[in-house]
């Protein structure tokens, strides 16, 4: 198993920490992982992005130019990364603020309404976990249990009471993906 993922959006959307939680979830399953924020050929352009690779084997480059899974959370990121999804790969995007939807037909495109879902949950901070839930529904590269364990690893103990809320957000995100 090997998943090459990029998550991109505005700074402040929880992009970097979503990548971190995903990386730690992989660690919980004893996978090889790399997490690389905002570096590489797409470091310019005003968006925050993070490359996460999960694999059963040694990972070569932490810097990539094409991905199995691309998660984009704003129009700029969509413009930049749509072409970088491998043929047959996955593109997940949040519909909020998207005026120019993706056009490729050789990839699996999932449009989710994560911003609205986070408003429904009355907590905008759960936004990235909703997106992560949706991503894991499309491609269950790690289990929800591992994500929760990974969360525990990244959060300081004083924030552990937030874990149930995050679990709810993950499930909400999964429900956004239509079968």
């Amino acid at each position: 198993m090997k998943a090459e993922i990029v998550i991109a959006g505005f700074g402040g959307q929880g992009v970097i920490s979503m990548g971190k939680i995903l990386a730690y979830s992989g660690l919980m399953e004893d996978k090889e992982v790399t997490w690389l924020p905002s570096y590489g050929p797409e470091q310019r352009g005003g968006t925050a992005n993070v490359t996460v690779i999960l694999s059963d084997e040694r990972i070569s480059s932490p810097v990539l130019n094409s991905y199995d899974i691309v998660v984009v959370l704003n129009q700029q990121s969509l413009d930049k990364f749509e072409s970088k999804v491998k043929p047959g790969g996955v593109l997940i995007y949040d519909s909020y603020g998207i005026h120019k939807p993706p056009t490729r037909t050789d990839i699996n495109v999932h449009r989710i309404e994560a911003t609205e879902a986070s408003i429904e949950l009355k907590n905008s901070k759960t936004f990235n976990m909703i997106v992560l839930g949706a991503m894991l529904k499309v491609n269950p590269i790690v289990t929800i249990e591992s994500v929760l364990k990974g969360l525990k690893k990244t959060l300081p103990e004083r924030h552990w009471h937030l874990i149930p809320m995050n679990e709810e957000a993950l499930k909400k995100g999964m429900s956004l993906i239509k079968e």
């Binding site: 971190k20 090889e32 997490w35 690389l36 932490p62």
Partner: peptide, 10 residues
Amino acid sequence: DGLIGQMMEK
């Protein structure tokens, strides 16, 4: 280099 410094791995 900055890449190895900023990257997270196991």
